[in-house]
Structure formats: structure tokens, C-alpha cells
Design a protein around this nucleic acid. Structure first.
Lengths: 337, 337
DNA sequence: GGCGCCCGTGAAAGCGCTCTCTTGACGCCC
DNA sequence: GGGCGTCAAGAGAGCGCTTTCACGGGCGCC
């Protein structure tokens, strides 16, 4: 069988003995169609295996029934982990329910990003989902100005933009309280870059978890969400205070480095130093010992972003909304007593 | 500024004092347009910030200028690693050069897959890129029957389908020869599932690397590309032959498990047993000791798939083509002498 | 110098669909 | 019984674009 020669609505209408208008109404679920006509059209659609032509429909409705997902280069870099497929799965799920198409854009260079912006502003999609990390990204602001419905994943720098984020702060605080509750007296942290919301919020959570009063016991080193960065930061921490007996590391990847550094320094985990990561990536169960970590509902984030966007599309000009998703603590050997 | 009220070709034409037809020709790079007209239209396009309406264009050209990328659930599962973003990046790059859109589909259940198939067969996209792993997937065959241009990433089960694959066999053979050349006398392998091309081909490569003559020295255990599977397989291997002094593991993830098992059995790496993985994932540098591994050109794979698809679209009915990409051996501590 | 040819351009026909407007049929109310 | 509201269904316009076809003018050729 070769490429299907497209069946048109016209043919369906003819077969069902109705007008094209009526056929269209049936296909689109318009309620004011008589019973006979409805079933006749239904039968014709099935017989001819009719599938509406999206282009033609878009042309007249001025909707594209598609949504763009933008993943800028820096984001793609940082997330080696299954983060990627997981958000996309969540988004895909939610979009499929509304039979919307997902157009993926991964701008690499700044020039690319401008192309993307022009593309999006041209109204080729009904809305945009942006997976953003770096606060410096100009895209969200630009799109907001152009009036393109937009939802960002991860807290964006500028206000007035709808977003979905996990409770980075709460999760971090939870991790720290877990360490304290376990008996750790000197709890340090390896934080992420402070120009990323996730980096800043997790550090804030660390402080919150320590309890405001204990602010003087704060012991933090900034790293860049990489293994090597984590290792170096851990070495710096040990140099600053050899008595450290608990560390909250703001990503599992960095935790891998931190664990290596602790090992090299002859510290036993968890007996000398307990460690908690963040992300609950598959990595967490491969470390020696397996790593306690903060789990994030990533698929849910994708799904929630999509829902929010749909609302945004239906009722524009409403105030920006945001949704914060709960995290959970997964306890493994690295913090067992 | 609110949502741009779309600028039409009509307006461009009027401003440039030409007909819509001429304006269209300029926009589409038709060579038979006079110099004056061309520059007038160019100026008007710039002044009005004209962007062609894709839907209208598709309607008449019967091309969608978009390509679907299909990533079935099982594939997404197996690739936790940065595989995902990397192929997508390669694809994105190549598509952008041709200003084609990337529509992402991630069917989850079988039902989903049928929806996807109908969607693709309806001609909503110009071609399909399928990232496939499991040999059992019926999608490629179905699309081939429907005459939809298709390129698969990873060797598909049925012939007659264009694909791009990395040289799994050659890479594996290379890994094994590296072990042998290093002095290993008893080289075993932990293979992947044999219903996946990558699993089967890497096992074949192991055999090839040993050299046909040494077939009696073959020592293979099948696992499922997971950490736990790798650990269990390593245990079985040690039980079968305690004298093993080299292992080629068909994925880094499984190698992590294998290393844990070797450790638990009191074997030193690489002194007692040398280990080589496959994928050269970021994981490889986080193991203790860092893991030698086979590197695959993943972005290149995405790019090549796209190029192949473009050819397929332009000249259909040509025989299926395939491209095999070279791998490289990355040597780390796990095989140092 | 006239004939034909090509080249640049315009007019206009749709691509397949949605949706407004109109029509017609029916029943209800006073 | 006539007017009116209601509801199903059809006629037709037109979304923005590409592309065929027709046309006029310039040029080469004999």
C-alpha cells in the first residue's frame, strides 16, 4: 500500500448524504446535530478512515493545536539524568489528552534562540513550555512581551510569569532536618550555582532546615552541579571544618563527587559523615553506599506545566499562576544509623 | 505589545507594489524574479516582519515541513543516560538547517502506539525518525507498509528499512581485543537482552574479538541493561569461572553492578580483573576505579538519521540505506596496567 | 524588419476546512 | 389559524498561501 491519498471531509459528507458543514459539526462534536445525521457521518468517517487535515483546520481556526517545548542548551547540559525524558513524558501525556502536538525546540547558541523567539512570536504554536534553569535567559521575558502564552518549568527570574517548580526549599530543609534528627551536629551543604533558582532555593532550604537560630553554624560551599565540582567543594568543606558529620548536597551528581572526596579523606559513610543528595536520580542507588536523596515529582511537573498552559491559553490576561510540587525524602544507606 | 496580528503575504505584496504571486516567489527563493521586484519584496518583508503562515502553505503544498521523532516507552526506559538529549540535539541541529519542525511523540502503551501510527499514516508529517530498541516493535513495519518515509535509529529487526546504527559489533570486538592485548587470558562478557539489536550485536562483537578459534573460551551471561542485572550476571560469571581476569560489559550501567559484585568478591580492579563498559556515559568516570568504555557518536547518529530521512523524502522508493557509525575506546583506570 | 521565444509578472483558481447566515420544517401559544 | 420561536441542516464565503496559465514586452535570428 502506498501513501494514503487524503480523504477529505467532502467525501465523507457525500457518503453520509449530508452537507460538508454537518459532517464538520459531527467531527468536531457540535451537539446540535440530529441523531440520524450524526450516525451516518460517524459511519462514513470509519469507512473512509477519515482524518481531518490539520493544516486546513488551523488555517481557519487560527489555532495550531500544537505547543512548543523549549529546552535551551544550558538546561540540556545540566540534566544528564533521566530528568529529560521524564518531564517530556509528563508533558506528552497531558498534551495527548487534549490531542495537542508537541513541537520540540532546542536552541543551542544565542542566534538560535533568536530564531526560536521569532518563530514562537509568529504564532505558530498556541503556547510555549520552557524548561529553564539559568536566570539569565532572556526568552521568558521576551515571550511575555509578545503575548505568547507561556509556562516555565523551574522558578523564572522575573515575576509575572507562570511557572511550575518543585519545592526546592522545602525539600532541602527536609533533608537537613533529617540529618539533624539523625544526630548530626555539624551539617554542611554543597550548594548549586546561585544564578539558578534551584541552586539558590536549595541553599535557602538548607538554612531554613538548620533553623534560623543556628545560622552561625552555617557551612556552605558553592559548586556547579558536576561530579568534579562536588568533589572539590567537599574537600574545601573538610578543610574548613574537619568535624563535619553531615552534608546536604544539592544534587546527586555532586554527591557522587562528595562521596569520593570523603572516602579519600578516610571518612566512613554514614558513620563518620552522613550524606543526602537531591534529585533521587538512578545514580543514587549506584553509589557506595547508596545515597539518601530528595525525590522530585518530575513527570508531575511536566503534566502540571501543561495544565497551567492550557488554562493560560483559554483565559489569557489573567494573573500569572504558579504551582509548587512537593518533594519526598528517600532514605538509603548513606544516612542509616 | 500584544499578540502580533498576523502579517499576510497580501500586505507585503501591496507594500512592495507587486502581486501576491511575485511576493510568494521571492519568499520561496524562486529564481525567475526580476531584481527590482526581489529587493522591493525583501524590504517589505523586513519592514512588516513578515513570517509565512505555515498552515496555509502546508495546505497547498501538501507538505507539512515537519518530521516526527518517535520514542517508544521501552526505549525511554533503557536510556536514562544523556543518550536522549544527545540524539535529540543531533536531530534538532540537522532539522534546523532545513527549517523543519520536530514533532515529538512518546507513545506509552500499545494503544498509544496505534494512535501514533494512525497519526503518522495520515500524512501529518513528511517523515518519521524512530528511536527503536526492542526488536518486537511493530511500528517500523507498519509505517513502511503505509509508505511513510522512515529512518530508524538502531538496527531494526526487519530488513528493507533505512537505519543508522553505531558499530556495536566493532566496538565490542575492540573492547575485547583491548582486554586481550592487555594480557587478560580469561575474558568474559555480560551481554544485553538478545532481542535488542544492541544486545545481540555486542555479544557478536565479543565473540569476534576473542577470535573465532577461541570460541571454546567463550564465557557469557545475559542481563537486562540494569545495575542489578549486571551485578547478578557478574556473580554468575565468577561462579562459573573464578579465574576470570577480564570482563567486557555491554553497558556502563551494568558495569556499575559488575564492579560492585567484583568488589564484593574481593577482586581488585584492574589488577585481578579488568573491566570495559559500553556507552561511555558520564557514569563511567564516577565509578571506582573510573571505567574504560566504548564511546558512541550519539549526536552524529541523530544528525545522520535526519540526513538519511531527507534523502528518503526526496527520492522515495529507493532501496533502504543504512549508515554505521564508528565507535571509539576510551581508556580509564579499570583497564590500566 | 518581422517572427517567435523567453522571461518577468499578474490574475485567479483552488488546497480542506470552519462557521456565519439562511432556509425550511415543526410545534406552540393566544 | 396565524405568527413566532426553535432547531436541524445547507449554502457559501474565505482563512493565507502556491502555482498554473495567460500576457506583454524585449531580444535574437534569419
Amino acid at each position: 500500500m502506498t501513501r494514503t491519498e487524503s480523504v477529505t471531509l467532502e467525501q465523507v459528507a457525500r457518503l453520509a448524504n449530508v452537507s460538508r458543514a454537518t459532517a464538520s459539526r459531527v467531527v468536531n462534536g457540535d451537539p446540535r446535530v440530529g441523531h440520524d445525521a450524526r450516525s451516518a457521518v460517524g459511519a462514513a468517517v470509519r469507512e473512509l478512515r477519515y482524518v481531518p487535515n490539520r493544516a486546513a483546520r488551523s488555517l481557519v481556526t487560527r489555532r495550531s493545536d500544537s505547543v512548543a517545548v523549549v529546552i535551551p542548551e544550558p538546561t540540556a547540559q545540566v540534566f544528564g539524568d533521566p530528568f529529560f525524558p521524564r518531564v517530556l513524558r509528563g508533558i506528552t501525556d497531558a498534551l495527548a489528552e487534549e490531542s495537542l502536538q508537541l513541537v520540540l525546540l532546542m536552541p543551542q547558541a544565542r542566534a538560535d534562540e533568536q530564531r526560536v523567539e521569532r518563530y514562537l512570536a509568529a504564532g505558530h504554536v498556541d503556547g510555549v513550555l520552557l524548561i529553564s534553569l539559568h536566570g539569565s535567559d532572556p526568552l521568558p521575558e521576551a515571550l511575555r512581551r509578545d503575548g505568547v502564552p507561556l509556562v516555565v518549568g523551574g522558578r523564572p527570574p522575573s515575576p509575572g510569569i507562570s511557572y511550575v517548580d518543585v519545592d526546592n526549599r522545602g525539600g532541602a530543609a527536609n533533608a537537613v532536618r533529617h540529618l539533624v534528627g539523625r544526630g548530626c551536629a555539624a551539617v554542611a551543604t554543597i550548594a548549586g550555582p546561585q544564578d539558578m533558582a534551584a541552586g539558590a532555593d536549595r541553599l535557602a532550604g538548607y538554612r531554613q532546615g538548620l533553623g534560623g537560630v543556628a545560622a552561625d553554624r552555617e557551612l556552605a560551599e558553592i559548586a556547579d552541579f558536576t561530579v568534579d565540582g562536588g568533589r572539590a567543594a567537599m574537600e574545601r568543606l573538610l578543610a574548613r571544618d574537619p568535624a563535619i558529620d553531615g552534608v546536604f548536597v544539592a544534587s546527586d551528581l555532586m554527591a557522587v563527587g562528595a562521596i569520593a572526596a570523603l572516602r579519600a579523606a578516610g571518612r566512613a559513610i554514614p558513620d563518620d559523615v552522613a550524606v543526602v543528595g537531591f534529585d533521587d536520580s538512578p545514580l543514587a542507588s549506584t553509589t557506595e553506599p547508596p545515597l539518601s536523596s530528595i525525590r522530585q515529582p518530575i513527570e508531575e511537573m511536566g503534566r502540571e506545566m501543561t495544565r497551567l498552559l492550557m488554562r493560560e491559553v483559554r483565559e489569557p490576561d489573567v494573573n500569572a499562576r504558579h504551582v509548587i510540587l512537593d518533594t519526598g525524602l528517600v532514605i538509603r544507606e548513606s544516612t542509616r544509623r
